[in-house]
Design a protein around this nucleic acid. Structure first.
Lengths: 170, 170
DNA sequence: GCATATAAGTCAATAACACTGACTTATTTT
DNA sequence: AAAATAAGTCAGTGTTATTGACTTATATGC
């Protein structure tokens, strides 16, 4: 019989989750995220766009007046990657940029009505998907879901989550 | 004042989650998944591999003796996409394939010891990440997290989630 | 005023990961 | 013998991302 490797089962701390539970969590995250993001893909394809466009439209919609660098910080991609999708969104009239009067280097972005329509079209299926899961699981489960997911977010970025109840400034 | 569009707030059903809550859920999923997957990326880069390799290694490890088509069904990618990563994993000795004696068309896959080491190396950081979130949130929250995420998975694929407690057949 | 820093945008080259469609080979089922 | 299935392969393509260097405009510190 070989010795148990230290990470196989950390029975030392009885409060520590079992290895099993952690695997289970990782699988849940994988499958749930896969199916959640899959909802918008069909719509996106009709507009010749990809997930990057969706993410940009979503976060500009949720953070009206956001600057380019703030959006970069949220998406954690490079300027070039963002610029490609941003260019098409601006060219096709989904997003507009305006120079910040306070700091004229900054370009503040917001959705046009056309952009808001797109955002709602994309989000509707995902919303329905989440709404069903929320309803099926019940309010207590939802609270737990939120707590765990919030804990999975790097501390430095937790403030970026828009809290429910906070009026969207759009 | 313009009329409320029907999807803005479905107050008709008091049990239905508010629009706010659904947005919040989508943001939590985005940030949490982003940071969760980010954990393994640094390690992966050292091995000249990407997330696709990680996913393949993970699911072969969790489902010893899995066939190529079963793995395709889990990952929901095309045969060609899988083949690229599978070829390198086999060439470099992380994964082996054996012909199924019962049906000699099938190739059953499992990890080599080297593959299992890699899988554990990759999973260790993510495990620690999840373990911390689990511990911080507490057991009731974990139960809720599981219920909601499970509900987010397409019904047809829920059976693919390895339940905790079920001994890994490896 | 000048140097430095910051915000945004751009260029060129590259890579990971995915796609479609067609096709081959081996094996099993009907 | 024909049809179906499992796996593997070929060629071509597209999205999303990367790095590194560079420009322009504006703001800030001294």
């Amino acid at each position: 019989m070989d010795e148990q490797a230290p990470w196989v089962q950390q029975q030392a701390d009885p409060l520590a989750p079992r290895d099993d539970d952690l695997r289970h969590a990782m699988e849940l995250l994988f499958f749930a995220y896969r199916d959640f993001t899959g909802e918008a893909d069909a719509v996106l394809a009709d507009y010749d766009m990809g997930r990057a466009h969706h993410r940009a439209v979503y976060f500009i919609g949720a953070n009206t007046g956001i600057s380019v660098s703030e959006l970069l910080a949220i998406l954690k991609i490079t300027k070039q990657s963002l610029n490609r999708v941003l260019s098409t969104l601006i060219d096709e009239g989904y997003v507009v940029q305006e120079t910040d009067d306070g700091d004229r280097r900054r370009r503040l972005m917001h959705l046009t009505p056309k952009g808001r329509d797109l955002e709602q079209l994309l989000t509707r299926r995902q919303s329905a998907h989440v709404a069903r899961a929320y309803r099926d699981a019940g309010p207590d489960a939802v609270e737990g879901f939120r707590r765990v997911l919030f804990g999975l977010i790097n501390e430095a970025d937790r403030h970026r989550v828009t809290l429910p109840g906070a009026a969207a400034h759009g």
